[in-house]
């Protein structure tokens, strides 16, 4: 994905798609509730259109996704989502320990070789870190964290 694109047209197209999504979600409700969001949808569509027109008249290209590895941020993102989706199943503590360890291992292998020995060091650190935050939130701040099949 390391390529140059016309970001004016790209952002304009994204804006037009979002304007369409929000336009079709406008419901038939009282004018007081809908007046402002409706105006905003029209304004966003106009700005998006202006971006597309400018992108055509004055085409310029910018590099996108050029920082580091795209696979790495995407995998990290997928792991973040999986972590949150598994939270109600495994509970905050277990899911956090599992996914933090996976992310640490995954990101560490970008620059060095990951061995079982290294995991033996990382896992206790992760458990200590999660325990610290878990206790602060549940015992000091009284925030009931998601519980799962374990606790």
């Amino acid at each position: 994905m390391n390529r140059e694109i016309n970001t004016e047209i790209a952002s304009g197209v994204v804006g037009l798609i979002l304007s369409a999504v929000f336009f079709f979600a406008l419901e038939d409700i009282s004018w007081m509730s809908i007046l402002f969001p409706k105006t905003l949808v029209y304004i966003m569509a106009l700005i998006a259109l202006a971006l597309v027109v400018r992108g055509i008249i004055k085409p310029s290209r910018d590099r996108i996704f050029h920082v580091g590895s795209n696979v790495r941020w995407m995998v990290t993102g997928v792991l973040f989502f999986a972590w949150v989706l598994f939270m109600p199943v495994l509970g905050f503590f277990v899911s956090t320990v599992v996914f933090m360890t996976i992310i640490v291992g995954y990101l560490a292998r970008a620059r060095s070789r990951v061995t079982i020995g290294k995991f033996m060091v990382w896992i206790p650190i992760v458990i200590a870190e999660v325990t610290f935050f878990y206790l602060i939130f549940t015992k000091v701040l009284y925030v009931p964290l998601p519980e799962g099949m374990f606790f």
Binding site: T76, F80, W83, V84, T96, F99, M100, I103, V104, L107, A108, A110, W122, I125, V126, E129, V130, F133, F137, V143, L145
Partner: peptide, 15 residues
């Protein structure tokens, strides 16, 4: 290490 920072900050963010 940065590989510890990313999940730690993510955890704090989620909390």
């Amino acid at each position: 290490p940065v590989y510890f920072l990313v999940p730690t900050i993510a955890m704090a963010t989620m909390l």
